[in-house]
Every structure is written in C-alpha cells, then in structure tokens.
C-alpha cells in the first residue's frame, strides 16, 4: 500500500507538471516521469509484460517522437496571446467541479478489497500468455479493429503530408486572389 501511495503521488505530480510547465521539453520530461511510474506500478501488480511494453512503447518510442517534434519545430515556451480571457475562470470552475465529483464518487462508495490470497492468485502469471489468451479470444474483434484504425491513420497522414509541395503553392496563389477580393 505504501509503495502504491508513493507511486501515485509521483504520478500525479508528473501529470500536473505536464499541463502546468511552460517549456515543452519540461512538460515532455514530466510526462516521462508519469509513464515510468506507471510502469513501476505495473511491476508491483506482477504485470511484467505490460510494464516492459509500457517502457518500450510509451516511455521509449512515443516520448522520442515527442522530443523530436519539439526539437524540429524548435518550440519555445511562449505564452500565447490571451484570447477569450473570460474563459479561464470558467474552465477552472468546471475542472474543480469535475474533480470534486470524481473524488466524491471515489470516497463515497469505497469497495472493500478481497482477501490477500484471492489477490495473490489473481495477480499471478502477469506474463505474455494471459494477455494473449484474452487478446485472441475475448478481444479478437477489438484487436482486428485496432488494425483498421492504424490503417486509417496511416492513409490519413500520408494523404495530408504527401501532396504538400504542390498543394501549398496552389493554395498560396488562391490566397492571394482571395486577399484581393477582400480588399
């Protein structure tokens, strides 16, 4: 329990850091912190395979992509001009109310934990096999659909990026005439 609490605090601090830190690199590093702590939590739950995947895919591959994008775009921590300033307090109020609602739910109906033996048996064998078992039986449809989703993402990304060279020039010409029309 103590381990979990420590991990949870670190995770929450990291998550808050992601949305509050001004420098994108700092925010990305805070995200790494959160993702790694999550991986450690998986280890404490005996889900070793999941923990390894978490580190390799999220803390590894995806974070590297994030950092690449930040580096290539050379993003500095600029504060954007305040548009819709009245929106800010409203957003805070909504966020606080939502957080309060979730907290109330969590503490109003605490569920008692099953006894230790039951937990221990449930947590056993967090390797590849149990995951494969459900993935290729109960969640086979979802597994296949994720493939379709990835295909859609690839086609979409390629179709937007691939034509850039030609399309932007044409669009600029268009934009110029549009400007004239407006003037």
């Amino acid at each position: 329990m103590a381990t979990f609490l420590i991990l949870a605090v670190v995770m929450i601090v990291g998550a808050v850091g992601v949305i509050t830190l001004k420098q994108p690199v700092h925010a990305a590093l805070a995200l790494v912190g959160t993702l790694l702590t999550l991986a450690v939590t998986y280890v404490t739950l005996e889900a070793h395979f999941l923990a390894a995947i978490q580190v390799i895919v999220y803390a590894g591959a995806i974070m590297v992509l994030f950092l690449f994008v930040i580096m290539l775009l050379n993003i500095q921590g600029e504060t954007p001009p305040a548009v819709l300033a009245w929106f800010r307090p409203l957003a805070y109020i909504v966020a606080v109310v939502a957080a309060a609602a979730i907290a109330t739910t969590a503490f109003m109906e605490p569920r008692s934990l099953p006894d230790e033996v039951q937990i221990a048996t449930a947590l056993q064998g967090g390797g590849v096999e149990p995951i494969a078992d459900v993935l290729f039986s109960d969640f086979l449809l979802a597994f296949q659909l994720v493939g379709v989703l990835l295909l859609t993402g690839i086609i979409g990304a390629v179709s937007l990026v691939q034509r850039k060279v030609v399309a932007v020039q044409e669009a600029r010409a268009d934009g110029a005439t549009k400007e004239l029309e407006h003037a």
Partner: peptide, 15 residues
C-alpha cells in the same frame, strides 16, 4: 476509425 478519417477529410483543403 470513423472520426480519424473525418478529421483528415475536414482538413482536405490545405492552404
């Protein structure tokens, strides 16, 4: 799946 394709399609007119 449905949304991802539509996000791309709504930005189809680049520029």
């Amino acid at each position: 799946i449905m949304s991802l394709a539509v996000y791309v399609l709504s930005a189809w007119r680049q520029g």
